[in-house]
Amino acid sequence: MDHHKLGAPIIVIKGVEKRFGETVVLREIDMVVHRGETVCIIGPSGSGKSTLLRCINALAPINKGSILVDGVEVNDPKLDKLAVRRKVGIVFQQYNLFPHKTALQNVMMAPVTVLKQDPREVEARARALLKRVRLEDKAGSYPGELSGGQQQRVAIARSLAMNPLVILFDEVTAALDPETKKEVLVTIRELAADGMTCILVTHEMAFAREIADTVYFTDGGVIVESGPPSQIFQAPQNPRTRAFLDLVL
């Protein structure tokens, strides 16, 4: 895609290492994400994709290196982690909606509780967001009454309600059947087109190829190769990338 629309760097990752005990799960990770950019991370299971997203959102501390989100060091022990999380939304594979609240309440809760915004103003915004993900008629439904694809779109709306600078998507369509998968991909495509900065971990190669500005291929905790989708998918430079794509395409 055209790189001209990209703005200033918004996430800058340098030399990040992440260990669980003795096991090194991420090493020497470098990545720069610009405002408005759509980044896709692909790679085999266990290569550390989810862990990287969790580190960006301060859900998991890193052992080495630095992650700057909008100029703020995520790994700074003095930093208020909550401040980072308010800037970075994350959508999970299993949706993780709050089952005791309706779709509308799920979207409204965080702005009201965390940002202390006026519930009436938040409700108007939440309804607009549900409309944006085509679920305005499901505002009063509970998560248990929604299909997987609908729940995932509520989760996206819930994330958007916090007005994040970036949204991280962790295999958000992996648990869905092909039909509902499409609904969710349409929503993400629209978001990306509207200029939202997105980092997607995905196994949907066709989708990654279509919407990514930059694709990262990870294997064994390192970034093996990165570049525009045309390079990664048509002319991969590294034999490991080639082997992986041969397997999944």
């Binding site: 999380r85 308010r86 994350i90 909606l97 709050f98 809760m109 965390v114």
Partner: peptide, 9 residues
């Protein structure tokens, strides 16, 4: 974790 990722204490 979903709540914490939304900035809940």
């Amino acid at each position: 974790e979903a709540a914490e990722s939304l900035g809940y204490t």
